[in-house]
Amino acid sequence: MYKSLTLFFVALLLINLEGLAQEKIYFGQTEIGLLVGRGVAQWDGNHENRTDLTLMSFHGARISRNHVVGFSVGLDQYDGVPILPFAFGYRGFLGKEGKPKLFGGVDLGYGSAILEEKVKNEWSESWYRGGLLFSPSVGVSFPARKGNTALTFSIAYRRQDFSYFQGNLAGTGAQTIVSDQLPPGFISLNETEHLYRSMVFRVGIMY
């Protein structure tokens, strides 16, 4: 699943390089980059650094010459857990046509953990649940000599959380009680919420 998605994004990137978008209204941006973060403090107080891959593709409509609203999809990795982000986004530009431009943006949405399969056996169940994604970004775009495409470099902050659940099932014969805190059929549930705050360094194209 993960591999095929990566291929899909690479394909998307290549197709977009053709510069198919002649329409003025449509705006697209596809980027690839690295998520860099500091892990939680370990027992000795040290932090391990975390570096993962991120792919992002933004599609929007120009509401005026320098403002675009749209949505982004992508694929992020956090400590080996793939997250599919879906977000609403904004991009704004500063600079003259045909010259390098400064741009900024913000994405707000949900990072889905749908790629992680639920593991279930006779005694227990474990699964992931996605969480809030918030990501402001700034960057510079260098327009191509001809056409509407531009090369981009950007840095962003990316806040993403998701939870890992591991629950033990009530065996036949065990007493179960109705409770809002536990899903039916469970005798215990361990939720580990991971909150990742990363810096993102990306390169890509606009079209």
Partner: peptide, 12 residues
Amino acid sequence: CQDEITSTYTYH
């Protein structure tokens, strides 16, 4: 720019 992990254990 640092990660956080919060564990919650709910049990019967």
